[in-house]
Write a protein that binds this DNA or RNA. Structure first.
Length: 271
DNA sequence: ATGTCTCACGATGTGAGA
């Protein structure tokens, strides 16, 4: 089972790229962010033609999230992050697909920082941490796949010193992300490629793609039971190089049908 | 501070957000 996340940056303007990528990479489940389309302008017909069903939460101009499933109907479990009934931004959607609960977050950017936008981001992350903890406590297999707008470590930034005051890399933002991970989640791409420089986003400015001046901000977090099924993970960099590309590439994981690694505890004695 | 791109409004440009 292949699960991917892709910040599409405008699903209608980017529809040819999305359809081409679906045909080439054949993910079973896709989390999309930044649809930038109202609910009624989601291109569901083209997506069905491509062999996928979908649920989505649109919004005029900004935000917007969707979950696609190949040959299956995602069973929606939520279309907003709990914890603030006044928050109307479409930044979270969640569904059950083939025995896996899939959460699709689009964390607020937070810039300019410091300021009210950073404060909103930090509050949103607290709500995500609370909800993620609830999901873990159910014991259900969960993947949270989306645009977290956080680089977890210096390895995830082409030039860390340039980004320490940015809302994507400030200490309090990283600390919130690490508290989330510490609940028991596995950052799948990092777990499969420890020590490797991997990016998922390259700014449109300053020829960032051409210089490989990237950031790793799109993540797939696995609950313990799913982490034991992790069989592969990576980033489809090629879609970032296409004409009219999104500023993000997609990150993906491959899950085996059954556990491939033992439980981490009790630990096996080294030979 | 800058750079580039998207979408909306409603017009052939401008503003906001990222």
């Amino acid at each position: 089972m292949k699960i991917a996340t892709f910040n599409v940056n405008g699903i209608n303007g980017r529809l040819p790229i999305l359809l081409r990528w679906l045909a080439e990479s054949q993910p079973d489940v896709v989390c999309l962010q930044e649809l930038k389309a109202p609910q009624e302008k989601f291109p569901i017909a083209a997506i069905r033609d491509a062999g996928y069903d979908a649920i989505w939460h649109g919004q005029k101009s900004w935000n917007g999230v969707a979950i696609l499933a190949r040959g299956a109907r995602p069973i929606e479990t939520r279309r907003a992050l709990p914890g603030d009934p006044h928050d109307v931004s479409s930044r979270y959607i969640e569904a059950a697909i083939a025995g896996v609960l899939v959460g699709c977050p689009y964390v607020p950017n937070g810039n300019p920082a410091p300021g009210p936008k950073l404060d909103l981001k930090l509050r949103w992350l607290e709500r995500l941490i609370a909800h993620a903890g609830d999901l873990l406590s159910t014991g259900v297999p969960v993947v949270i796949a989306g645009d977290f707008n956080v680089m977890p470590t210096e390895l995830d930034v082409y030039k860390p010193e340039r980004w320490v005051d940015d809302a994507l890399f400030r200490p309090e933002v990283r600390a919130a992300f690490h508290r989330l991970i510490a609940q028991g989640w596995v950052d799948a791409v990092r777990a499969q490629h420890p020590g490797e420089r991997i990016y998922t986003f390259w700014d449109y400015f300053r020829n960032a793609w051409g210089r490989d001046a990237g950031l790793r901000i799109d993540h797939l977090l696995l609950s313990p039971a799913l982490a034991r099924r992790l069989a592969g993970a990576g980033v489809d960099r090629a879609i970032r190089g296409l004409p009219k590309a999104s500023d993000h590439a997609s990150a993906w994981i491959e899950l085996a049908d059954h556990p491939t690694s033992p439980r981490s505890s009790p630990r096996r004695r080294a030979k």
